[in-house]
Structure formats: C-alpha cells, structure tokens
C-alpha cells in the first residue's frame, strides 16, 4: 500500500472541498473494497478523506412515500430495515446474498455502489488491464472469462460489475444523490454506472470529488412483490455468475408492470428494458416469461468461457417471474 494522508472532515462540504484540492484523493467509507485494492496497489490514492461518519446512517421515509437511504447506512442495517424488508424485499435479499455477515457490517450503501470489478486480471497488477492501466490491453477477452460480460461490453473491457445491491436498486429505479464541487445533483441509478466503451477505467459517471450522500427509492407499490435470485459457484460468500432482480405486478393473469435487472452480465447492473416491454400487457405465464428473457438476451455476445450465462440468465428470469406470479 502506498503511503497516503488520512483526513477527516467536519462536514460534507468540507470533505468535498478537501478532495477537490487533491486530484489523487479518494473518499473512504467502509473500506471493504478500497482497502483491499490499496493493499494490492491497484488503487494508489495519496489522500483518503474519511466520510464514514459524515453522511447519514439513517433510513427515512420521504414525502412522496419512498425511502431515502443515507450513504453511510451499512449493508447489514439496510438489509434488516423493516420498511425495506416489507416494501422492497428484492433489495433486502440482494444485500444478504452478497459478501458475508462481517463484511456487510462494515460496508456502506455508497461504497457498495462504487465497488470495482472482480475481474481476475484487474486484480493482478502483473497482467495487462485497460481498466487498471488504460491502454495496456484487456487480458480477459482472450483469457479466463467465465465471470465476464455477455452484454454491453467493448473490445477494451469485458468486466462485470460485482454489486448485488446495485442490481436491486436498478430494478427499483433508485436515484443517487451526490454532493460535488459544483453542488448537488440527483442521478438516476441507471446513469451512475457506465458501459466500458473506450474508457473502461471509468466505472461511473461521477466526477472527481463527487460524494454519494444518499440513495432514494421512489415509491413502487408492486415492489412488495419482488425478489432477488443469485447464482454463484458455491452456496454462499461468492460473487454472482448471474443474478436477477425482479418485481412483478399481475392483475387477472396479465402483466400490468414489471421490473427486471441482471447482475453478473455487464459492466453495469443491466436493466432488462426489452424484456420488460415485451411483457407489459401480456399473459403472466412461463412461455411469455421465457420469450421475454430471450428477447433481452438476443444481443448477448458470449466469450470463450461464458456462453452458459445466456441460458442461465434466461432460466432465472423465467423462474423468478414465475415464482412472483405464483406467490401472489
């Protein structure tokens, strides 16, 4: 780990101002991914501004009937929150399917969104990686790429986003509140993470110095009928091969509305809008669920080791929707 200066700030504007002055600085919250990456010198900040105690650690109902989650709320507290569990079970389930109990006690909501990929080449400073070292090449594209993207990748990067929480939040159309040098803004979560394109080194659309302060979940009545299904290589404590966050609103056997997002398939949580569109107004049955999944996956471009993700994603989308339509 490179030596760095540790700094506390009095308040959020103070933290933002401190980081604005240090182009090679980072915010520190739970540290569960940043410290990991710093030890390996994959990330080498000169300064850390500790924001763990600055942003809110509370979950509050908003005026519009939604929920505001402070950036410092731990993954454990968010998963255990009564409102989240009854109104947005998909989010609670996503959180408890990630990491481990003791990691979730450290990790924060803001930090979880900003997790970096688990691509083994990104994690190894002795191999080329465009995300870690722009222009050095992508080792995964012709290497071991079972864990990698099948949707929305580029020739420069085929990494996936590792967060489970973010997949659920994507399905819930969350908004991410940030405070930056130019003031505050509110970003739809789908615009937070970016496709790799020509700049895979940029995971998100955040500018330097922008600090996530809270995440808003808009009200969504049928989110109470939602679930998260994650497939991984062991029963627990592993990143997703593929995951799905789904919420379903069925009336008289017809799909009134549906939300679908996939994890483990792309550089960002993948909102399955094509599948959603295909389902609205259709009969809620297995054949339609499967057909909708196939439509979403038509664009899939599997790599050497990950063609299995196409049938796997199709199957768990179908399964999750079927269970949601049966459980009502």
């Amino acid at each position: 780990m490179k030596p760095y200066h540790y700094q506390r700030a009095r308040d959020i504007p103070g933290a933002v101002a401190a980081l604005a002055e240090q182009p090679n600085g980072k915010y520190l919250a739970g540290g569960t991914n940043l410290v990991d990456l710093m030890k390996l010198e994959i990330m080498t900040p000169d300064m850390l501004v500790d924001v763990r105690r600055l942003t809110s650690d509370r979950i509050e109902e908003t005026e519009d009937g939604g929920v505001r989650i402070g950036a410092a709320v731990t993954n454990s507290d968010l998963a255990a929150d009564r409102t989240i569990r009854s109104c947005y079970p998909v989010l609670s389930q996503a959180l408890v399917s990630g990491a481990s109990g003791q990691l979730r006690n450290l990790a924060t909501t803001g930090g979880n969104l900003l997790q970096r990929t688990r691509c083994v080449y990104f994690y190894d400073t002795t191999t080329p990686c465009n995300k870690r070292e722009p222009g050095s090449g992508c080792s995964a594209i012709d290497g071991h790429n079972k864990d990698h993207a099948i949707l929305g990748a580029s020739e420069r990067c085929v990494a996936t986003h590792p967060s489970d929480m973010a997949v659920a939040m994507t399905a819930l159309e969350a908004f991410v509140n940030v405070h930056g040098p130019d003031g505050e803004r509110r970003i739809p979560i789908e615009e937070l993470h970016r496709p790799p394109g020509d700049e895979p080194e940029r995971d998100t659309t955040l500018e330097h110095g922008e600090l996530i302060t809270a995440v808003d979940l808009p009200p969504l009545a049928f989110a109470s009928n939602s679930k998260y299904r994650k497939v991984r290589e062991r029963a627990s404590y592993a990143f997703a091969l593929v995951s799905v966050a789904a919420a379903l609103d069925v009336e008289d056997g017809t799909v009134r509305d549906v939300r679908l997002a996939l994890g483990g398939v792309a550089h960002k949580p993948w909102r399955a809008t094509k599948a959603e569109e295909a389902l609205r107004g259709e009969q809620a049955n297995e054949a339609n669920f499967r057909a909708a999944a196939d439509i979403e996956l038509e664009d899939a471009e599997p790599l050497r080791d990950n063609a299995f993700k196409v049938p796997l994603a199709r199957n768990i989308i179908t399964r999750a929707l079927l269970e949601l339509s049966e459980e009502r």
């Binding site: 080792s139 290497g143 029963a235 404590y237 990143f239």
Partner: peptide
C-alpha cells in the same frame, strides 16, 4: 493457469473457491 502469463490467475479466496459452511 493462464498459459500466456504462466501463473494462477484466480489466486485468492474470493476466486479460488473452497467450501463454505453453507455448502
């Protein structure tokens, strides 16, 4: 092992999976 580089690329407990209690 990535034959281009000659070493084990999944060289940690996040990627080299051993059974957990739940398994």
């Amino acid at each position: 092992v990535d034959p281009r580089f000659g070493h084990v690329v999944n060289h940690d407990f996040a990627e080299y999976h051993i059974p957990t209690n739940a398994d």
